[in-house]
Design a protein around this nucleic acid. Sequence first.
DNA 1: CGCATGCTTGCATGGCTATTCACACAAGAC
DNA 2: GTCTTGTGTGAATAGCCATGCAAGCATGCG
Lengths: 340, 340
Amino acid sequence: MDRSLKRIRPSPPSAHDVARLAGVSQAAVSRAFTPGASIAKATREKVMEAATELGYRPNLLARSLIKGVSDLIGVVIGNTQNPFFLPVLEELSTRLTRAGKHSLVFTAEHGHDADFQIEDVLRYRVDALVLMSASLSFELAEKCSREGIPLIFFNRRPRWDLPMASVTGANEKGAGEIGRHLLEQGYRRIAYMGGPTDSPTNNEREEGFRRALEQQGAEPAMRELGYLTREGGMAAARALLNRPDRPDAIFCANDFMAIAAMEVARHEFGLEIGREIGIAGFDDMPDASWPSFDLTTYSQPIGPMIDRVMELVLDLDARERFEQVIVEGALQKRGSTRRG
Amino acid sequence: MDRSLKRIRPSPPSAHDVARLAGVSQAAVSRAFTPGASIAKATREKVMEAATELGYRPNLLARSLIKGVSDLIGVVIGNTQNPFFLPVLEELSTRLTRAGKHSLVFTAEHGHDADFQIEDVLRYRVDALVLMSASLSFELAEKCSREGIPLIFFNRRPRWDLPMASVTGANEKGAGEIGRHLLEQGYRRIAYMGGPTDSPTNNEREEGFRRALEQQGAEPAMRELGYLTREGGMAAARALLNRPDRPDAIFCANDFMAIAAMEVARHEFGLEIGREIGIAGFDDMPDASWPSFDLTTYSQPIGPMIDRVMELVLDLDARERFEQVIVEGALQKRGSTRRG
DNA sequence: CGCATGCTTGCATGGCTATTCACACAAGAC
DNA sequence: GTCTTGTGTGAATAGCCATGCAAGCATGCG
């Protein structure tokens, strides 16, 4: 009986309310809030005044419904402990907002499958989908493309030959530079420590590295593939360092794992980093330059990479060009591979 | 002339299309997709079949428009380099998705002001707003509350006596434990290194720390307040360590700054961490337990904290109780404060 | 003064779905 | 066989805003 739910939420004023107060039509209100619309200055002011008084704010959901464009960009972050992605996410979100878009963030729960959530993403009619280090099943990818939603992979190339763009660092090139650098420094028993073999990023880095060693006539690298977690990296490092032919240098698929390896080498095996064991990573994430790590690595320049992502998100034409953009970084020589 | 924009986007099928194909009304389609709605099993199947054939997916924007509930939760992350927030954000986003909500992420561009963006947030009719380590001006906060949008501060108490809830770690208690721990370890010239004084989080930690020292009859701590960036932390550490009465222990407002301080102490001043200088932080972020840091800290348990955030987001009643939830963590004694 | 032009404005409609209401129909009670 | 329930269904409406269209108005030109 009159168990009135205490104003669950006072429904916000609509354009009609404003129109009534301002003594104009609802259409005028709409135009007042549309930059460049055909409306007299005086009218716009009247409307704005009424709007302020009522606390009116156009409902973007309704606008999206009409325009068929939501201005929402889905961002899927692969479930990773890798701190590299925090600045990336921040930068992306900032830039999207500045461009009048907004980021709807999802996390891929179990490693690979952003699958389950995609359904939700699509229901919100996002204008584009940015996948950060996450994968996608064949069907799902197809579903998006059929839906006309551009797919942009960040830091990961799409596995199949499907219509989607990608922005990645210079994996092969960078890994090659790391390989040559290690040889120059005099390391000879070199290992590669990577992620899962079904990760294109991992494979490109390994391949670039392998090829560089080969070209220099060096022994092929030992391999140890773990997961991309902290524990995975540590386990992989232990496996390598326990080998009878213990490597004297390790190139890790990313900085995060490199730091894990460094910690194991230094604190579990008592090795002096650089002199007794060289360690290199990939990404140049902020942690890499802490003096305690001083990690040699190949940078993935976040700013320029996001630049390219934004182009792909905003440029309609790009939807038809499924570019594989590669952004070059630079070798960061640091103490972790300094021998003498 | 017929410069047809090559199917800008094939407008997705609507409930009407499905209804026509299935030979039912649009209402039936709606019901088929509404769990618990009054619809015959056979009808639902017919609808689902047609829906699958057309690739139909209910438009959440339209649904939101009707229901007056968007299922969108605004998440504002303060512009911070602090890696602590990546796992927090991931966990929050995952949990929201699991609860059928979705996170609209914004970044507060210039330190304090999430202000500018709030306007956008409100236009999307978010159901709630979670502020992570970000502040909000008085007017904006009021605007939200007038709009009926619950505000939830995470890791930061609202500065004014306004209707908003907060979930924070046990700042005072934790800082007190750190203080007592440092004294127990025999440190005597103790410093506090914190963030800006207008940050309630900073102030609570400093206050808890100060009081603990006082109760133990110890000298009041030296203070050095920097910004919450890496460079700020390093600068503050240099200032402290250059003092004639150099402290023998430093408690930093968070792990991120503690690590910055540790790096300066170790690599610029050549001090042995623990023996010559004790360092403690707050948060227990993943990096803190790398053996190279082995940082004593007070944990902010992400899981339980997010639990409480979710309660506040989901529980309608909570909107009327503006709770200040404090989640206790535990002192993590590690090597960075081990003297002998 | 007549008319063309350009700027403003309101009306009406559309976009997509959830929900109320009334109604049809089947099953069960008597 | 009638009456009552109950279940399923469709028509109609609402929710909020943008936009095509036509009409109003003023201005400028001839």
